[in-house]
Write a protein that binds this DNA or RNA. Structure first.
Length: 273
DNA sequence: GTCCAGGATCGGA
DNA sequence: TCCGATCATGGA
């Protein structure tokens, strides 16, 4: 990885086999819009227009090193995924095949509250509509940050607004879950900083205290928002994969400590047919 | 119109 | 403990 800044924006070279498209399109994040060969992305209160050419990423609208470092961290470009993929490939031939057929997926390092809230919205929902609802939540409570995006609202902003104020985002029964999460996080009942320092199992249990958060939503939040790469979310697609290739005796611990990375490859390949 | 979506909760067996 | 109905909404 090699970061430089010029008049047009930031440039990050030597990103290995990182794939911007596969990483964004693998269902981890919902605040991005495809713009021809580029992606307009938002995370927290950051935004950028990003293109990839070979192993180099270009960030339009990113004019200083701090902002470039934010995106480098967001895409987890400092981690050696080659090593992880090699380890997983040696562990399991099926995962090896998934990695080979769609390489370059990184696990994003998203902001914890934003990730938790986004995956509460994701339950029993499809990705295009999840994106719409998340963007709607931001435009309702956030501030303009450019590229047509709004910042992700803090938990206390949503908590103070009240559950009725959420109705315009059309999240249906999930509104009460979003509100419960916002209240617990805002008043400190759930301390996301403490969750971040917990062991995986305890962290899952802590997040499940929130109404509307079960194993799957908790696992997604911990994987994509807390850097817990061993979390293994099981949704309908991963259930298909397990039934198809592994059977009832499947145990995700076989991929430890990178079960989440394996899961993401299996999920992506299955969803792309 | 029907089926389904990166599920979780609830009530009843 | 297990299982099915139910939950809002709209994409495909």
């Amino acid at each position: 990885m090699n970061i430089s800044i010029d008049a047009t924006g930031a440039r990050i070279a030597d990103t290995g086999d990182f794939s911007l498209e596969r990483t964004l399109e693998s269902g981890q994040c919902f605040r991005f819009v495809r713009d021809n060969d580029a992606y307009l992305c938002a995370a927290g209160s950051h935004t950028a227009r990003i293109t990839q050419d070979g192993d180099t990423l270009y960030f339009e609208g990113v004019g200083d090193m701090d902002e470039a470092l934010f995106w480098a961290d967001y895409f987890d470009l400092g981690r050696d995924y080659g090593e992880i993929n090699e380890f997983l490939s040696k562990t399991d031939a099926n995962v090896a095949d998934a990695i080979k057929s769609c390489p370059g997926i990184h696990i994003l390092k998203q902001e914890p509250w934003e990730t938790l809230c986004s995956f509460i919205i994701s339950q029993n929902n499809n990705i295009p509509r999840i994106k719409k609802i998340v963007l709607s939540l931001c435009s309702l409570f956030g501030d303009e940050i450019g590229n047509g995006f709004f910042s992700f609202p803090a938990a206390d902003v949503i908590a103070r607004a009240g559950v009725e104020a959420l109705s315009p985002i059309r999240a249906g029964f999930r509104n009460k879950y979003i509100f419960d999460a916002a209240c617990r996080v805002a008043d400190g009942d759930i301390d996301l900083t403490k969750v971040a320092s917990m062991e995986l199992e305890s962290a899952v249990g802590e997040l499940k205290r929130i109404k509307g958060v079960g194993d799957k939503v908790a696992s997604c939040a911990l994987l994509f928002g807390f850097g817990m790469l061993d979390a293994f979310p099981v949704d309908v697609w991963v259930k298909k994969v397990i039934g198809k290739y592994y059977g009832d005796t499947f145990e995700p611990r076989m991929f430890a400590p990178y079960a989440g990375v394996a899961q993401q490859y299996l999920f992506f390949r299955e969803r792309s047919l």
